[in-house]
């Protein structure tokens, strides 16, 4: 059995998703959990784009491409919010420094 190009990247996508999921569950620190979530997201994006490539003619299916394009920008926004939460939770001296600057 020979693998088509989209199947090579499809399998990669599944492995990235599972690696990321494992990281989210097992890593104790918030920063590494957020990175692991991003790797899961990358796996999902890669799966969608490899499906779009499956029997591309003149161009690959543009609908999954559009979904991934918006998805990348939403993912970075969600990561920024997660990082904001991590900074809020992770600073041991957040109480002392919390006052608005004078």
């Amino acid at each position: 059995m020979t693998l088509e190009q989209d199947q090579i990247y499809g399998i990669t996508a599944m492995l990235l998703f599972c690696l990321g999921l494992h990281g989210v569950v097992t890593r104790p620190d918030a920063l590494r959990k957020i990175i692991a979530l991003n790797i899961m997201g990358t796996g999902v994006f890669l799966f969608l784009v490899s499906i779009a490539k499956r029997n591309a003619g003149e161009f690959a299916d543009p609908v999954p491409h559009a979904m991934v394009l918006t998805g990348i920008v939403v993912a970075v926004s969600a990561s920024a919010f997660g990082l904001g939460l991590a900074r809020r939770l992770g600073s041991p001296d957040v109480e002392e420094k919390d006052d608005p600057p004078s």
């Binding site: 990247y9 994006f45 490539k53 591309a56 161009f59 690959a60 491409h65 394009l69 990348i72």
Partner: peptide, 25 residues
Amino acid sequence: LSAPDIALAEAAVGAGLTGVLLLDT
């Protein structure tokens, strides 16, 4: 995978903005 649109966005977001946000945090 014939997705140059996504390659452009990923190069700027994945390698740029996300990295800056992570390093800064």
